[in-house]
Design a protein around this nucleic acid. Structure first.
Lengths: 204, 204
DNA sequence: TTCCATTTGACACCGGGTGCCATTAACCTC
DNA sequence: GAGGTTAATGGCACCCGGTGTCAAATGGAA
């Protein structure tokens, strides 16, 4: 269980574990003792590795929670690029975000626990900001590209922030309603965002 | 300079310094060596107090940067409550945010350095999230109150996030343009937000 | 077997943050 | 002025997250 099968044929010592494996161990401890009360030493000991080694698998304790969830941003960028050029911005946004949040059937449970930690634990809330910034940057970049503006301009920034807010609100809703489907919630949320926002500003 | 004049007539030893004093000392060091490179020991030593005492004036090193900037949220809440009931949400928002960001003439410089730190130093960006959350909560609460929704609902949340994004974009703009007036920048930014948002969603 | 590549984990160290507690400095009362 | 009370101080030990260094362990290839 702890000896990770690694592609043979490569010189050098084989890793004694893996990110996923460590993630599993850590999540069990987080669930049992809480995130803050679980120390890196605890995780390392439970995984049978040295403390120093832990930090070779994850840059920080916080990063454990995000896990493979990271690195998908490039994928999101591609999805944006793949949308038809004539499509309204908010519609592209909805489609991409919903698609981006689709997870495998078996992963749903872990995804839930993951988001629960991210949204509820203060230390992770703070840390998440940096991730969110990247996420927003991708959205702003897209919005800017579509409207012929710069990503740093007001409108793309506001859109990106609002989109993030919508996504977070949807996550919260999903967490509160165990039976619901995340993608469905996100879909209606972003549809509502597109329809309802700016109601009494421009159109009144 | 280091002996703080405190209201006499109170029993017990008098504080040997003050938050503002510590803030001054800290900001000087931040400016000279950078936020990360400045340790709490450095600040304490420079202020002539013990390290332990520092943490009685500020909960954390991060908190130094926010200083008296904190605790104003209640004031913002009041300002919202004072707006005429018939006023469009986005207009109230603009008025209150602009007013909320008005600082004394002599404080402008410090305010600038403060925001520079908050927006540029990663550690502070992360920490700021928790403050932003409170700020957003006030906005969402107002928006919800006005539209008969709950603060946790989608629309108030999206508005609050978008408002925060707009404010941050305005701050960035202000920092980049030394001659500009923060309130003026914020005013146009929020006016633009009210006018321009949802352009191609509802009205196209 | 020897060489090389890679991972490991021990050790020491730094910096932020906290609990504890004796000490110091003020005021107040007798 | 002595003694009590109140409050701030600062030293100490400690925890935890994170990093630099380096010798040892492990495996493939020559």
């Amino acid at each position: 269980m702890s000896t990770a099968a690694s592609p043979p044929g490569r010189p050098g010592r084989r890793p004694s574990t893996s990110q996923v494996e460590l993630e599993n161990v850590a999540f069990r401890l987080f669930e049992r003792d809480g995130f803050d009360a679980t120390t890196v030493d605890d995780i390392a000991k439970a995984a049978g590795i040295g403390r120093r080694t832990f930090f070779r698998y994850f840059d920080s304790k916080n990063d454990v929670v995000w896990g493979a969830f990271t690195g998908h941003l490039e994928y999101m960028r591609e999805r944006f690029a793949a949308r038809p050029a004539g499509e309204p911005v908010m519609e592209s946004l909805r489609a991409v975000v919903v698609d981006f949040n689709r997870v495998d059937e078996g992963e749903t449970d872990r995804h839930r626990r993951r988001l629960e930690l991210i949204l509820r634990v203060p230390a992770l809330q703070a840390h998440s900001t940096l991730r969110y910034a990247d996420w927003r940057a991708v959205v702003a970049e897209f919005a800017a590209h579509r409207t012929g503006a710069h990503p740093g301009d007001l409108r793309p920034q506001a859109i990106a922030h609002a989109a993030l807010g919508t996504a977070l609100a949807a996550y919260e809703h999903w967490l509160g309603d165990p039976g619901s489907d995340l993608c469905a919630v996100l879909d209606t949320a972003f549809a509502e965002l597109a329809v309802g926002f700016g109601e009494e500003s421009r159109c009144s």
